[in-house]
């Protein structure tokens, strides 16, 4: 099948990335924020895969694997923190986390 030009891949990754960003900004619920973070990281992974496809070496894909492991680690720690937050505040709304200011 005719190869898809890599620019389209990059544009797709960019769109995905921006969605992730908007997700982080608009969401009040911390869990959804973590999900949008995942989306952003996967978008970068996609860009890497598109890159490696274009140049034909495996670097991009290895990078994608790295990104996956990293995202997993972050989410793990994030969820741990969310549990502790819920136990203390009985809510997952991030506006609770605003004691420190000024």
């Amino acid at each position: 099948m005719p190869s898809i030009p890599y620019e389209h891949g990059l544009i797709l990754a960019a769109i995905l990335f921006v969605c992730g960003l908007i997700g982080v900004l608009t969401r009040r619920n911390i869990v959804f924020i973590l999900m949008s973070l995942e989306i952003m990281l996967n978008a970068c992974g996609l860009a890497f895969v598109v890159g490696s496809a274009r140049w034909g070496h495996a670097d991009g894909q290895i990078m994608f694997l790295m990104i996956l492991t990293l995202a997993a680690a972050e989410v793990a720690v994030g969820l741990g923190l969310i549990i502790q937050m819920y136990r203390r505040f009985h809510t997952v709304d991030i506006s609770v986390l605003s004691e420190m200011k000024g």
Partner: peptide, 21 residues
């Protein structure tokens, strides 16, 4: 720190991805 650091890692990764591409 987690959320913001993750976002900034995202920026770095995307930048690198564009350069790599």
């Amino acid at each position: 720190y987690l959320v913001l650091s993750a976002v900034s890692s995202g920026f770095v990764l995307f930048g690198v991805a564009l350069l790599y591409a």
